[in-house]
Measured scan of single mutants.
Amino acid sequence: MTEYKLVVVGAGGVGKSALTIQLIQNHFVDEYDPTIEDSYRKQVVIDGETCLLDILDTAGQEEYSAMRDQYMRTGEGFLCVFAINNTKSFEDIHHYREQIKRVKDSEDVPMVLVGNKCDLPSRTVDTKQAQDLARSYGIPFIETSAKTRQGVDDAFYTLVREIRKHKEKMSKDGKKKKKKSKTKCVIM
Rank of each mutant, 00 (worst) to 15 (best):
C185L: 02
K178C: 05
Q131I: 09
T127C: 12
R164F: 04
L133Q: 07
A134L: 01
D126E: 09
G174A: 07
K169S: 12
F156S: 00
D173A: 05
T158Q: 14
D126H: 08
T127Q: 10
A155F: 01
R164L: 12
L133T: 09
E168V: 03
I187C: 15
K128I: 09
K165M: 06
K178T: 15
K167T: 04
D154H: 09
Q131T: 07
V152S: 06
T158F: 02
D154P: 03
Y137T: 13
Y137V: 12
K169L: 07
K128P: 09
R164P: 00
K175W: 04
A155Q: 01
F141S: 02
D154Q: 11
L133W: 13
K165T: 06
V160C: 03
E162F: 01
I187Y: 13
D153C: 10
E162Q: 10
L133R: 06
M170G: 05
V152W: 15
A155T: 01
A130Q: 08
V186A: 15
K128F: 08
V160P: 00
V125C: 14
K184H: 06
Y157E: 14
S145F: 05
G151L: 03
K178N: 13
K177Y: 08
V160F: 07
K165E: 05
H166N: 10
K177V: 12
V125G: 14
D154W: 03
K184A: 01
D132M: 04
M170C: 13
D154F: 05
E143D: 13
Y157A: 13
D154R: 08
S145L: 01
D154L: 10
H166S: 04
Q131R: 13
T158K: 05
V160I: 11
D132T: 06
T158W: 02
K175L: 15
V160A: 03
Y157L: 08
A146Y: 00
T127F: 08
D153V: 14
I139L: 11
R135V: 10
Y157I: 15
A134S: 10
V125A: 04
I139V: 07
T127D: 12
A155C: 11
D132C: 03
K128L: 09
S136A: 14
A155H: 01
F156C: 03
A130H: 04
T158I: 03
I139C: 04
K176Y: 09
H166A: 05
S145A: 09
E168D: 08
L133Y: 14
E162Y: 01
L133E: 06
K178W: 05
T127V: 12
D126F: 06
Y137W: 15
H166F: 12
K128M: 11
L159M: 02
A130Y: 15
V152K: 11
S145E: 10
I163W: 01
E162R: 02
L159E: 00
K178V: 08
I142L: 10
S136V: 07
D132P: 01
R164C: 02
R135E: 15
Y137Q: 08
H166Q: 09
T158C: 09
H166E: 04
Q131N: 07
V152T: 06
M170A: 08
Q129S: 08
V125I: 03
G138M: 02
R161T: 15
I139G: 02
K167Q: 07
K128G: 12
D126R: 04
E143G: 05
D132N: 04
A130F: 15
K172Q: 11
T158H: 10
Q129W: 14
G151N: 15
G151I: 07
D126G: 08
D126A: 08
H166R: 10
K176W: 11
Y157V: 14
L159G: 00
K167F: 02
Y157M: 12
S181R: 03
V152F: 12
K184G: 15
R135G: 08
Q131W: 04
V125D: 14
D153G: 09
S136R: 08
A155D: 00
T158L: 04
